[in-house]
């Protein structure tokens, strides 16, 4: 065998996990089998689907809003030096603030519920998308900029025909990063400030009788959905209009 197969590696880790449960010997840490039963219980209780939908709903809307604002803003800030001088310091100043730190304000403004969740996901995805788009526009090659100038492409036409398509491969990469961050943040937000969603499910399982089997089962669900989201967004990279951007990397 030339490479360790992924299945074999996963089984090895599962065996170690099981072994560790035996060594520790308490009732709290769930074994792989406990986790599987926990997963079945979640599925049968019907509750899992509602929480998945709640989390995905917040991520979808927060992410789409962030893309809708962040991409145009990134294009303008990346292209215009004057706008960049005014706006970029604020963007860079807000960027290092963890989206988690916004939770109290989000709840204060929107209350416990989807509004606060969507706002937090917006904050989490807005900065990677905006900053990624800015960098993409600044990286547009000189010959393409000059071609556009030579043929008199300007104004909205410039954005539509040159800046947006030229930046698109890198924008898609930043969307991918942003969606990953959004999925991390939605769980954290739901653990603290929501009463539904996969993060809330984890907190609820802990508070209602330390059901660690349900907690670990939910963690697996979160991981699986994260992978599916990444696979879905990577499909954007296959379009003819952007494939050029991934060829020479």
């Amino acid at each position: 065998m030339k490479v360790l197969s992924p299945v074999a590696f996963g089984l090895l880790l599962t065996a170690l996990w099981w072994l560790a449960c035996g060594v520790k010997g308490d009732e709290i840490m769930p074994t792989p089998l406990d986790t599987l039963y926990g997963f079945v219980e979640l599925v049968e209780s019907q509750r899992l689907w509602g929480d998945i939908v709640a989390s995905l709903f917040r991520v979808t809307w927060g992410f789409l809003l962030a893309a809708g604002v962040g991409i145009p803003l990134g294009l303008v800030v990346g292209w215009s030096n004057r706008v960049s001088v005014a706006v970029n310091p604020t963007i860079q100043g807000l960027r290092p603030i963890s989206p988690i730190a916004w939770i109290p304000l989000a709840i204060y403004w929107f209350g416990i519920g989807d509004g606060a969740g969507i706002f937090l996901i917006f904050v989490a995805s807005f900065f990677p998308i905006t900053v990624g788009t800015m960098a993409a526009v600044r990286g547009i090659s000189l010959v393409h900029q000059r071609s556009a100038r030579n043929f008199g492409v300007r104004g909205l036409d410039l954005f539509r025909r040159v800046l947006l398509p030229a930046a698109m491969p890198q924008i898609i990469t930043s969307l991918r990063i942003a969606l990953g961050v959004a999925w991390l943040v939605v769980v954290a937000a739901e653990m603290v400030g929501m009463d539904s969603g996969l993060g809330y499910l984890i907190m609820d399982a802990r508070n209602a009788g330390a059901r660690y089997d349900l907690i670990v089962a939910t963690m697996f669900v979160i991981g699986a959905i994260g992978i599916v989201l990444d696979v879905l967004i990577r499909k954007l990279e296959r379009f003819d209009e952007v494939r050029w951007g991934y060829e020479n990397r």
Partner: peptide
């Protein structure tokens, strides 16, 4: 720059995100 005098670059100034047709149509908008 002026569209009546066109520059041909060594490092391919055509747009990789546009088809051959759309590239050639750039100056005919």
């Amino acid at each position: 720059p002026d569209a009546r005098r066109v520059f041909v670059f060594q490092e391919y100034g055509i747009f990789p995100w546009a088809s051959v047709w759309d590239n050639v149509a750039l100056g005919l908008r």
